[in-house]
Design a protein around this nucleic acid. Structure first.
Lengths: 155, 155
DNA sequence: GGATTGTCTGGGCATTATGCCTAGCGAAAC
DNA sequence: GTTTCGCTAGGCATAATGCCCAGACAATCC
């Protein structure tokens, strides 16, 4: 999937002012409305734009504590563990990684004390051998994509 | 920040069909348009909804490899390292965590070979003592928020 | 060379949504 | 008992959307 400069500019614009309309975007970018429409459609059917879902801040929902847990899994228990973690709302994200049958997951909790409860629930499952948790103190770079978009579209 | 059932339903609806309008949302939820408008405004000024930025898939941009790197930082070099990592487009996210002056960052790359280049660039900086990288193989639970929203809004 | 395909432009048109307003109702708080 | 707050319900002018078209231009293919 190649992206050109117009696509990049459109993505940047959408990232900065998400609630912008197609018409307004075409004015800003200096192209015809149909062009923006077509580019948007293409980016979406390409899968470059996965969606425009609302970004919800867990902290604002009452879950200000974030942590990353590395899990060591018993051989052959991967699917069970996955299914288990899916049922825990505080598990925001789960990856399987290279290494000793490991998984990495992102957790949130209401407090440090509550984090203990969450971790207990996460690791209170047979297939999980060991867990090590790192609590997030700061988030100097929140999830971002624009620098990568710029690079991919030739700056 | 408390969230009630209507807020939760609105967030769910927006997550499923993000390009929906206020009017359509009010029809689906069976409430008046002004109500949806007011809830949306409140959720946004509360910071619960941080925005509606497009979700861009790095894989579709040509960066199908994701990895997490744990960095060990020299005492007092935190700010410099942060500034350095900010300049690397492939660094999608950066956290400082509890532990031995550690940071955790999410990286993407064009290939496993390219990941080496990215890592070299990330760790090619004075304040970084050691780095250990875990390559993501699967993503059984992509970043999600709805289960937490449901819990926070009283199911 | 000539034909075809794809992309962008510029415009028109009916439908729909938006922003902004008013007024009334019910419940909870003071 | 009265005030405040959130929700409903509606009206209205403006603006955006979805969908259509024809024409220009470049790249590609026969």
């Amino acid at each position: 999937m190649a992206i050109d400069h117009l696509d990049g500019a459109l993505l940047e614009l959408l990232a900065e002012e998400p609630r912008i309309g197609v018409l307004e975007a075409s004015r800003r970018l200096g192209v015809a409305r149909g062009t923006v429409q077509a580019r948007l459609d293409r980016l979406q059917s390409n899968g470059v734009i996965r969606g425009f879902g609302p970004e919800v801040d867990p902290a604002a929902l009452g879950y200000p504590v974030t942590a990353f847990a590395t899990l060591e899994i018993k051989q052959g228990q991967g699917n069970d563990v996955r299914a288990h973690l899916t049922t825990v709302p505080e598990v925001l994200e789960l990856h399987t990684t290279t290494g000793h049958g490991d998984m990495l997951c992102r957790l949130v909790a209401r407090s440090n004390a509550d984090l203990q409860r969450v971790i207990d629930r996460v690791v209170g499952f047979d297939g999980i051998v060991r867990a090590s948790t790192a609590i997030v103190m700061e988030n100097p770079v929140p999830l971002r994509i624009i620098p990568l978009v710029k690079q991919a579209s030739g700056d």
